[in-house]
Design a protein around this nucleic acid. Sequence first.
DNA 1: GGACGAAGTGGAACGTGTTCCTATCATGTC
DNA 2: GACATGATAGGAACACGTTCCACTTCGTCC
Lengths: 203, 203
Amino acid sequence: MSTANSLSAEDLGSAAQRDRRKRILDATIELASTGGFDAVQMRAVAERADVALGTLYRYFPSKIHLLVSALGRELERSDAVLRERPTPGDTAADRVIYLLKRTTRGMQGDANLTEALTRAFMFADGSVKAEIHAVGMLLTQMMARAMHPEQTELTELTDEDVAIARVIGDVWLSALVAWVTGRSTAADTAVHMETAVRLLLRD
Amino acid sequence: MSTANSLSAEDLGSAAQRDRRKRILDATIELASTGGFDAVQMRAVAERADVALGTLYRYFPSKIHLLVSALGRELERSDAVLRERPTPGDTAADRVIYLLKRTTRGMQGDANLTEALTRAFMFADGSVKAEIHAVGMLLTQMMARAMHPEQTELTELTDEDVAIARVIGDVWLSALVAWVTGRSTAADTAVHMETAVRLLLRD
DNA sequence: GGACGAAGTGGAACGTGTTCCTATCATGTC
DNA sequence: GACATGATAGGAACACGTTCCACTTCGTCC
């Protein structure tokens, strides 16, 4: 398996390189916001980021790597905002539902961007394992924090907690895919996710 | 939204046309089996099915339509085989787990084919709504039949049954994607699905 | 049997993701 | 300051999904 990773922010020594990487991801988000997956064209990203096409490919070895990395950055941003204050809700189910609704609402506010990021995530093949894994871990962490706000370490979670978090993550992704492809409305999505959470977290 | 549907088997009057359609789908499955998603190249499909490229596009307006239609045909085939004898298992959970394991095992026996079909399904956009919906209905039906073998009509299902079937379907798809992209092993997949079913169907 | 429209053939052409090559630029070393 | 080395620019070239066109074949109606 060829494991050509994207250059992560840590690998990049020089400030100019970190700045290039940021410009590339910014351009990606802007284009995705404008016209979704199809509008994120590598030549257009390179031009808007003021970078040569070859450089773009040096930083991100494919369009999918690029978009999944962008998804990772956006999720980290959300996570940081959410962590500023405790998640409201008296039960684990309520808190998880709050988290999902809030995140989903954020994504549904920018349908094109969500379509681009979701489709990239779903289309990714084995070569994007590292980037996908990073996103998966982040999601599980966010969910786990909502379920057990008092615990800060993932290691304290029971197997069942982790299993539940994963199932909820699965449902969320599927719901997102269904919404992105126009198979279900935003309201359907919300209802379906809430139902799933209540089925799983009966406390 | 442009809704260019694939020509379904019923639309095709002449035997020659049904045969062409079959040859195309056969060629698709063969190529997918050989080299996965990337090996299903439209020119190659057309050549192997002994059909002009334009004709291929007349029958299936895109590679994704083609692969999702192929997935539909394979699922119908599985469903027909499964319906020949009652699903074993004493509880709904056991029967659903049997169904999932058996179907998954079948898919994992041909990793390339599964990769091709799964990725097409996940990458599909709004224009493939009709084909995707057909697959979704089939899956829900299969699951519902496993949960309640005595009921033959979908209308007899409760809302909760449908919700559970959908959640299980979501988990199954996500597990398949994770397996296809090399993020989890076949064993992981089986365990994860079994856990999810037991969480959802505690009877 | 001939006319006509639908369906199929063969292949050129286009767009976009990806690769590759050469020249130029930046940075650190002596 | 000259040089070595790696990063970047600029752009040509290639692959494959998709579109299009001119021509041929097939089926049907008169």
